[in-house]
Write a protein that binds this DNA or RNA. Structure first.
Lengths: 145, 145
DNA sequence: GACTTATATGTGTAAAATACATATAGATGA
DNA sequence: TCATCTATATGTATTTTACACATATAAGTC
């Protein structure tokens, strides 16, 4: 079950980065290259170039995204990715799952904050922890895909 | 990158269930058996008995929890698990990571809600989605560990 | 013609998730 | 006493993920 002495890296990479990819593509068509940049600016620190392109191809095979070559710009041809109808459906399903996650996390922090009160009686009241969402723009994720 | 046609199972099992285990044990001592029940009531639908006991042993090896035999009750002796100091520290680290998760999720839903407005112009305004946390007690997680 | 940009694929390793089977042993009760 | 229940524990096999890094191709740019 893994070594609990080394740093925890809490990153269900594929599961976590995929919905963001679909979400981005649902709002704009992007080249793989742009997508990487967007993901990075969203907080995915390291995105492995090779694996991302591979994923995109897989998504296209599965008909969740589609692409067309875009020539004419500067540099070599770029593949412009868009989301498909199926991709949108899939994204919706993902959103439901993520919502469930959020619920679990809320549950966790609700318990955790009262846990803090147990161990650190002087701990500032609930709200500072319980809804720490919306918080500091920390960039966290170490997803490499 | 997995088959995108089958149902998504979005469950970083270990990473997700472990903080809950530590959290529960930080608030009360529990037998493995009770722990399973608690986890289930928290939304972890299926928790594999064998793997959970194995995990507990590992956590004890790593000194995040400790246990003592409890005889005298009904049935066979039970091992009563408690959290250790190190376990509490570890839980705190986990909480930080989960907080980051929450931030990412918030980010996702913020974007996602405006995505819905794009595709479904009549979609009810932001708040119903964006902070869907605290919501319905859905039981979601399929964690088997 | 070297260099940059963009896309793409190959390959390997380690860890994790998952799923079942099996074992042991005390307690309970017919 | 024998079957059953409860509780803990371990074995093991398969597949998927995560991660990392190397390499390839090809069109543009300077």
């Amino acid at each position: 079950m893994g070594n609990h002495n080394k740093e925890q890296s809490l990153t269900p990479s594929k599961n976590f980065i995929l919905p963001f990819i679909l979400l981005l593509l649902s709002r704009m068509s992007l080249h793989g290259y742009e997508l990487i940049q967007k993901l990075q600016s969203l907080g995915f620190r390291t995105v492995d170039q090779g694996n991302l392109y591979r994923l995109l191809r897989k998504l296209e095979q599965d008909n969740l995204v589609c692409s067309e070559w875009e020539t004419g710009g500067s540099g070599p041809a770029k593949r412009k990715y868009s989301i498909t109808e199926a991709g949108i459906k899939y994204l919706e399903g993902y959103a439901n799952q993520l919502e469930s996650y959020q619920t679990m996390l809320d549950q966790f922090f609700k318990m955790y904050s009262s846990f803090l009160e147990l161990y650190i009686p002087s701990f500032p009241k609930k709200d500072s922890i319980e809804k720490s969402s919306e918080s500091k723009g920390r960039s966290i994720n170490d997803s490499k895909e």
